[in-house]
């Protein structure tokens, strides 16, 4: 006998959920696998052409670099927002979500305009001999913009929950400020930091809109993988686009899966879990 549910609407809501997810998400996604299965070896091999390999490398490298930069900067921002109240803090806190809310195309053209050689920032950097727009550095800048909130928003709540007494205790035991930071704080923050890093990295891998305007899009040099897919589609090379998309998806999924494994126990322990109902003590 199937257990009867107490609250009504289980069948209806679950049925609609599965139906909708199936139609909107799973059918399209399985089409990718279906199409890929129908590709010939030659068509698949195109996904390993030097131009494609360069694109994967660039996408992975820049996303990694930006995520790393964000891990540092995001930790700093979260720390300052939580621990150092200053006038206008709430405004700054709200601003952190801007990359979530601002359409990527807008971010893309704005960053390109700012960092090009006659832009506000680009001109000053050019005077120092540093070229950002139309180089991989530009891609890192765009991905840093896009990924920043992920790190701040995962680290911030953990930092808020953290008991300052542990730090005081470390101080009272004779630890220096840097010892306290590295031995007491950082271990507590590491799972959240890694989660934020992974989220920013994942977002950076697939990012398109904010990058293409600042990247320059030179094949083999500043052409990211999503753009290569786009270019193949514009040339009506659907098979080639599918092959590149598949290889790129598999590569990023396995990387992200590895990172998830790395997060391992810490993240799982932190995840809220609902216990089965029982008599209260």
């Amino acid at each position: 006998m199937a257990a009867r549910r107490v609250l009504p609407g289980f069948g209806l809501s679950l049925g609609l959920t599965v139906l909708y997810l199936g139609l909107v998400v799973l059918v399209p996604l399985s089409t990718l696998a279906l199409t890929a299965a129908g590709l010939s070896w030659d068509q698949l091999w195109a996904a390993a052409a030097p131009r494609a390999l360069a694109a994967y490398r660039l996408s992975l490298g820049c996303a990694f670099g930006a995520a790393l930069l964000n891990a540092g900067a995001g930790l700093l921002v979260a720390w300052v927002l939580v621990r150092y109240p200053f006038p206008g803090r709430r405004l700054v806190d709200a601003l952190v979500d801007l990359p979530f809310a601002l359409p990527t195309a807008v971010a893309g053209i704005t960053l390109a305009a700012l960092y090009s050689e006659n832009g506000w920032v680009g001109a000053r950097l050019a005077a120092l001999g540093l070229k950002v727009a139309y180089t991989p550095l530009g891609i890192v800048v765009a991905l840093t913009f896009v990924g920043l909130p992920f790190v701040v928003r995962t680290v911030q709540p953990v930092l808020e929950e953290l008991d300052p007494e542990a730090e005081d205790a470390a101080c009272s035991l004779g630890a220096t400020r840097s010892q306290t930071f590295f031995k007491v704080l950082l271990p507590e923050l590491r799972p959240a930091l890694l989660t934020g890093f992974t989220l920013a990295f994942a977002r950076g891998l697939g990012e398109y809109g904010s990058v293409i305007f600042i990247a320059g899009n030179m094949p083999l040099k500043t052409e990211i993988a999503p753009l290569l897919i786009m270019i193949k589609l514009e040339q009506y090379d659907v098979a080639g686009a599918t092959a590149v998309a598949l290889v790129f998806l598999l590569a990023s999924f396995s990387l992200l899966f590895g990172l998830h494994l790395l997060q391992g126990r810490g993240a799982r322990a932190a995840a809220p879990r609902r216990l089965p109902r029982e008599d209260a003590a």
Binding site: T31, P226, A241, T242, A245
Partner: peptide
Amino acid sequence: PFSVSPVVSGLLFVLL
């Protein structure tokens, strides 16, 4: 959908 590149998301509908 969060872990799929927007371009790939678009590609899915081209394939369909």
